[in-house]
Design a protein around this nucleic acid. Sequence first.
DNA 1: ATGTCGGCATTGTGCCGA
Length: 259
Amino acid sequence: MQIASFNINGVKARLPAVLDWLDAAAPDVAVLQEIKSVDEAFPREPFEDRGYNLETYGQKGFNGVAILSKFPLEDVRRGLPGDDEDAQARWIEATVTGRRAVRICGLYLPNGNPAPGPKYDYKLAWMARLEARARELLAAEEPAVMAGDYNVIPQDEDAARPEAWAKDALALPRTRAAFRRVLNLGFTEAFRARVQGPGHYSFWDYQGGAWDRNDGIRIDHMLLTPQAADLMTDCRIESGVRAGEKPSDHVPVWIDLDA
DNA sequence: ATGTCGGCATTGTGCCGA
């Protein structure tokens, strides 16, 4: 089972690029972030024409997540538990079954800038709720994947210019500590289980020719329960997508599961 | 350090979020 995560930065603006990517790469399962569309306006047909089941959790103008799957999507849940007042569409879950059942969680973690401030408080509160949901997923002792745009630069080696991000909400010590707290529950960060060292990024800003200078950061991650990690056979970042026509500022991250 | 983009409210362009 090949699973991809891709922050597409607007489904309307990105439709040709996303469809070209699906035609070429054909993931079994994909989680999308920043669809920036309400559910009723999401262009379902071209995805369904390609054989994908589709579940969306959108809102007007910002945020929004979706799951695509060639397998049926079962037990769909929308929204990260823990705050009934939270209207931002940043979390969706479903179970897919290939040779084995895998719980798929797609997430778009708050950016949190400027920090300090209310947006950073919201980010940290959201990460505490993520930790709580992560504990539940672990307790189930089943294969589960939490994939998406975490808006977290885990370590300095995950940025081409770490000094430029030192005071940013994506890299502040409290952000990194909250991310580590989730990992330390027993999750495997898929990419770092496979690849070591600097120079691997998943986002390049549109500004300042960041892609041309390879001035990137690695903020799109996949966290696996032990039962999922035991099934992982590969993890990679599809950085070439960033050079395409009218690209997103993020690129897809992939895992292969023997499932 | 700010050279960009997407979406919205709005009919021209400024604002927000990233």
